[in-house]
């Protein structure tokens, strides 16, 4: 699971309500993705290109159980890496087939627009402009299996729990 893409840099304490605002609760999935970060970075969602990578500081995804990760995935982001990630957001990311990696110090490695190369299985993050590499928390086999299946819903369909 090697990913390479253009980097967007966000700071500390990026919470679920910024990722998946309440204004997105009662609209269609197509409209929901346009509202990602509409309160802290209006217009950003239209700039994202498929394969882009999100880099952030500490406590990314703090807050609600609403699955912000699914909106980041549908927006086309390939994955995200942060200094630290809220446990509930992290579980949501894996469950919705969106690769997420905790890598302390990663937020200091990048400027916006740099190209990152990430090996999710090894937990390594490289800035191709500076050559700097850091290693974060490796994904467990269980989480890799869920990601490779495409998320929990796909697993449940495969196993016959959902039609």
């Amino acid at each position: 699971m090697k990913l390479k893409g253009r980097v967007w840099v966000f700071g500390d304490e990026i919470n679920t309500d910024l990722i998946f605002p309440h204004s997105a609760f009662r609209v269609s999935p197509e409209e929901q993705v346009k509202l990602v970060f509409s309160d802290n970075r209006p217009g950003w969602s239209s700039l994202v290109k498929p394969g882009d990578i999100l880099i952030a500081g500490k406590n990314f995804g703090t807050g609600s159980s609403r699955p912000g990760a699914v909106l980041l995935r549908r927006l086309g982001l390939a994955c995200m890496v942060a200094d630290s990630i809220n446990g509930l957001f992290y579980r949501n990311a894996i469950s919705y087939g969106f690769p997420a990696l905790q890598c302390p110090g990663v937020s200091k490695m990048f400027e916006e627009g740099d190209i990152a190369e990430i090996n999710m299985l090894e937990g390594t993050v490289t800035n191709l402009r500076t050559g700097e590499t850091r290693t974060g928390n490796k994904l467990s086999k269980l989480m890799v299996d869920i990601l490779l299946a495409g998320g929990i819903e796909e697993l449940l369909i495969q196993e016959g729990y959902m039609d």
Binding site: S65, S95, M162
Partner: peptide, 15 residues
Amino acid sequence: ARGFGPAEMVYIWCK
């Protein structure tokens, strides 16, 4: 006790 997202809640209900 802890929170889960909707996909995992379905997983827990099913399994």
